[in-house]
Computed example of a mutant assay.
Amino acid sequence: MHQRIATESRTPDANIGILARADGSGRFGYGSQISLASVTGPVEVRMRDELTDMASFQVVVSPLDNVPGIPTKAFAAELQTVFGAVLLLHRHPRTLIQLVVQTTSKPMTTTPTVNLSLNTGEVNTSTEQSNKSLRTAHLRGPDIPFLASEMATSVNASMLALIDAGIPLRATVTATSCAVLSVDDALRTRNMDPSHKSICIVVDPSPEEEQCAISCHVYAFAFSGYDPLNPQQQDHQTQVELLYCASTGISNAKQRNELYNIAREAANEQFHHLRSVLESKAS
């Protein structure tokens, strides 16, 4: 049985209304992993993009360095699908709502696929080290894939920006990331369960942990049905729906079932944290 590892050093950092020239903005991060999102709209739309029965929704993911590549375009399309499922676009027909997302943290250092010596010869390593090298291999330039924690913070920052802009929604979306890795590869700052085994599940992993993880996963959930007039009944009325799931690496069915339950609990904690941030801003 895998054990969830918790840490006090990666508490969430959330804020809204931090950009002056945007209709809505939000920032969300864990430790050094921080994402920023801004929303413009509803505004006038070009005739070629105009929709008669709903607003046009566009998502732009702006990389911190380099130019947008295939992973950037793919992640923008995924964000458009996730939030397109909860936005009430029919409330603002013939307009445009644009969401811009950017990760403000420094990208992780890339590593080559094959270990080379000083004389350009391949280094002979053990099977375990070779497999770990393949897991930590990353492409360079605009083809660098997004980290799981980077995708989760981007979803949460986007949710804060949409709420700050006053865009009507049918649900609140929160995301979390998980990584399956060896206990020896987990950060020493984490509080280890005394009954943990050699393999563990880390919630909201750091870039260093993702680099040596066996598999990484991202989950986004939609929370709806909350009645502010009856806050005592929120746990019974809130409906939770899985909107998005992405995985990289090797995992089995037992791990995925456990990861889903852990991610749902963590996303529920994110939901309450985002609501507390909004309540503190409103008061």
Rank of each mutant, 00 (worst) to 15 (best):
T40G: 02
V39L: 08
R46K: 15
G17I: 11
P12L: 09
M54C: 08
F57H: 03
L19N: 05
N15R: 13
A20V: 13
G17M: 10
V39I: 15
A14D: 04
A20Q: 14
I18Q: 09
I16K: 01
L19V: 15
L19K: 11
F57K: 03
Y30W: 15
S35M: 06
M54R: 13
T52N: 05
V43L: 05
L19S: 12
L36N: 09
R46G: 15
S25Q: 11
G41W: 01
A14I: 01
G24A: 11
V45S: 03
R21Q: 14
D13E: 13
S32C: 05
V60H: 04
A55V: 01
T11N: 09
V61Q: 01
D53N: 11
R48F: 09
V39K: 06
A55C: 03
T11W: 07
F28P: 03
M54L: 01
A55G: 01
T40K: 11
S32E: 12
M47P: 00
I34F: 05
V43C: 12
L36I: 13
D49T: 03
R27F: 04
N15D: 14
V45L: 06
Q58W: 04
V60P: 00
V60Q: 02
A14T: 01
T11L: 15
S38L: 07
V43K: 14
D49N: 10
M47I: 12
E44V: 04
A22M: 10
G41K: 02
V59Y: 01
V59R: 03
L51Y: 05
F28H: 05
P42G: 02
V45N: 05
Q58N: 11
S38I: 03
R27C: 12
D49F: 07
D23Q: 13
M47S: 13
I18R: 09
V59N: 00
V43Y: 00
L19C: 14
V59T: 10
N15C: 06
G31R: 02
G31S: 07
A22F: 09
R27G: 09
R48A: 13
G26Y: 05
L36D: 05
S38Q: 13
Q58M: 04
G24N: 12
V61M: 05
G31T: 07
A20N: 13
L36Q: 14
